[in-house]
Write a protein that binds this DNA or RNA. Structure first.
Lengths: 142, 142
DNA sequence: TCTTGACTTAGAGTTAACTTTAAGTAATAA
DNA sequence: TTATTACTTAAAGTTAACTCTAAGTCAAGA
């Protein structure tokens, strides 16, 4: 069976071996086996588990909560409902983040247009477009 | 002209007066005026500027960089290009974050389906669907 | 055999963005 | 007049997620 060293795994997931050890210490990887000399040996299934951990991380889940999920996993079928509920929550959270980013994007695109116009005319002080605003808020009112 | 106290502004932006003072201290609000007794007085234009600051924050921009933008604003037309470039960069960053969230969402939705199926059959151990994976990575392989 | 590089551990340090504390001032309500 | 509330400042503390340091082990190549 193909196995991976900590640095191979780190490279694959674009992190440092330090970070992987930190995750292990925080209880995210209780399933990693060791060599007789104590080195971590990563199996294919460990890589799959890490992908799920990465997914939960990029959904904004804190490491301590990911740890709870990992614990549920090792408790078996009795925690299926918790795990399902957790992923439903994650889904709602990611949807909310997407919604917020969308609103942010609208403001930013408006600003891009504003500055493009200002650059074309060489100045922000374009009374025909907008006036009465301070230097700081120009372009933020409509 | 309508003005606002620090706690009114805090309530409007769903933060504490503490946080607003912190932003001020970090140089994000050099335009806020004070009463003779030293209290901050927020004008309508300050509210607009704060909306832009909030937008930059939710795009993931660190406070120190937002401060640079605020400095550029007070330097006038000579910094128009920098500010335009900055918003183009923000746009690209938000687009990348949206892309990442989309990928995360796909994994999460897959997991929701996986756990729904598992709950229906009362167990994760469904050889017809998937086998050969550890307790930790089940549902993460396809 | 010696050196090099990758690994191990425990624990301290870093960074961002708050968040709280301490000590005090000013205006307003009872 | 006294108490309350909102405000002020400077500075220390908190939290998450690393990130680094120190001290040491182990296997492979010159």
């Amino acid at each position: 069976m193909k196995t991976y060293s900590i640095s191979e795994v780190a490279e694959y997931f674009d992190m440092t071996p330090h970070t992987l050890r930190y995750y292990d210490k925080e209880g995210l990887m209780p399933f990693i086996e060791r060599t007789s000399s104590g080195k971590r040996v990563f199996k294919e299934s460990d890589m799959e588990a890490l992908k799920v951990i990465e997914c939960l991380k990029s959904s904004g889940m804190p490491i301590k909560e990911i740890k709870h999920f990992i614990e549920w996993c090792s408790e078996g079928d009795s925690t299926l409902q918790q795990r399902y509920d957790m992923f439903l929550e994650r889904k709602a959270s990611v949807e909310a983040q997407m919604e917020e980013l969308k609103k942010t994007m609208e403001v930013i695109e408006h600003k891009c247009l504003y500055y493009k116009t200002a650059l074309d005319s060489g100045t922000e002080d374009v009374p025909l477009i907008r006036n009465g605003l301070s230097k700081y808020s120009k372009g933020g009112a409509d």
